[in-house]
Design a binder for these strands. Structure first.
Lengths: 190, 190
DNA sequence: CACCGGGGAGAACGATCGTTCTCGCACCCG
DNA sequence: CGGGTGCGAGAACGATCGTTCTCCCCGGTG
């Protein structure tokens, strides 16, 4: 049972370090130091670093999508809900330790060498796109729009990471999204 | 003088390997093997791996933007030129060795640890965005549109990389771009 | 021919890292 | 109390890698 808390501590440290400095530049020993979980315990929880990486991405995935969904659920109007996604992205981009999308970064780092990581990244992105599809169909908008909304969100994430421009890419993406929604015949409350 | 050809060979090998397998997973020795340029020569051309990486990104940057510009220049109508960007992206995505945007990937891998790489990535993205701004203003469209066109292109690049879906993200981005251009009052010939 | 400078092949070095092993301590069951 | 078992601390191991060094050949110069 105590190993559950060790697991969470290990994942906390892994998330902080992997996300902040990249995966390859963080050693298992750094994670031990930051988490207080001994190397032996680390390796019985996660038999290889790759599994720790995947577990970190998985846990972050459910939390990330949950935070997004909670924000969106604060809005009633289906058209407004779509735009709320970009508001939330803007909030995220302004967090002081924001360093881009963990999955896009991980894919750039390990997508070519680790199939498990690549699969986790695809799974996260598909879930996000699926979520947008749901919002679009709730608003009576065509399915193709969701793909475009997705591209805007992805573009905003990379741009916010590379330039460290805070919420601005999210604002631009939100403006574009609003125009696309209107163009497809959706109503957007103010 | 002969060192110029060694430099090109080194950069050819660096580009092939760094782009295909990621930067950190390619050793200097791999580059020597693939280029035929001796380690000693490599290190007198590029005193550290980081400089080889930056040189690779720089050379690829000018070639990439030139290829794009050549494609776009095949079109006359200013509105059509904007959409030609997405056509070209689609062609690029279908190349058999396509593995995403070299700069986004490099940023995910080294953005947190190498300021020189991060600066090169920013420089490339700013140049690309600047190019789109030029296309937008040639078409008499507002400057803000260029930011949105940029986000669509970036989103298409990451998505095409993660899913290996060929040209489809470029098609979606092109449709969105077309709608945005029309929404801002631009004329788009078919 | 003697010499020298540059370059290639590849060994060597030092650091890092993922992973495993050793050792010693503390706790639990009889 | 006594023996064993699980765990933490950290050393150790083996591989990899960036970088430098050694050694040897070759081509040019007097």
């Amino acid at each position: 049972m105590d190993s559950m808390v060790a697991r969470e501590q290990a994942l906390d440290a892994a998330e902080r370090l992997f996300y902040g400095r990249g995966i390859q530049s963080v050693g298992m020993d750094d994670i031990r130091g930051a988490s207080g979980v001994s190397l032996k315990r680390l390796y019985q929880l996660f038999p290889a670093k790759e599994q720790l990486v995947v577990a970190y991405l998985e846990r972050r995935d459910v939390r990330w999508r949950q935070r997004l969904a909670e924000h969106v659920e604060g809005h009633e109007d289906p058209g407004r809900r779509i735009l709320a996604v970009y508001d939330w992205l803007g909030q995220w981009f302004r967090e002081p330790d924001f360093r881009g999308c963990a999955w896009i970064n991980s894919y750039g780092e390990l997508g070519a060498t680790s199939e498990r990581v690549a699969a986790q990244v695809r799974s996260h992105k598909r879930a996000f796109k699926g979520y947008l599809s749901g919002l679009a169909s709730d608003a009576g908008l065509p399915a193709g729009l969701a793909d475009q909304l997705f591209l805007l969100a992805e573009g905003a994430m990379v741009t916010a990471a590379i330039e460290q421009s805070g919420a601005e890419p999210a604002v631009q993406a939100g403006l574009a999204a609003r125009m696309l929604v209107k163009g497809y015949g959706g109503a957007v409350g103010h």
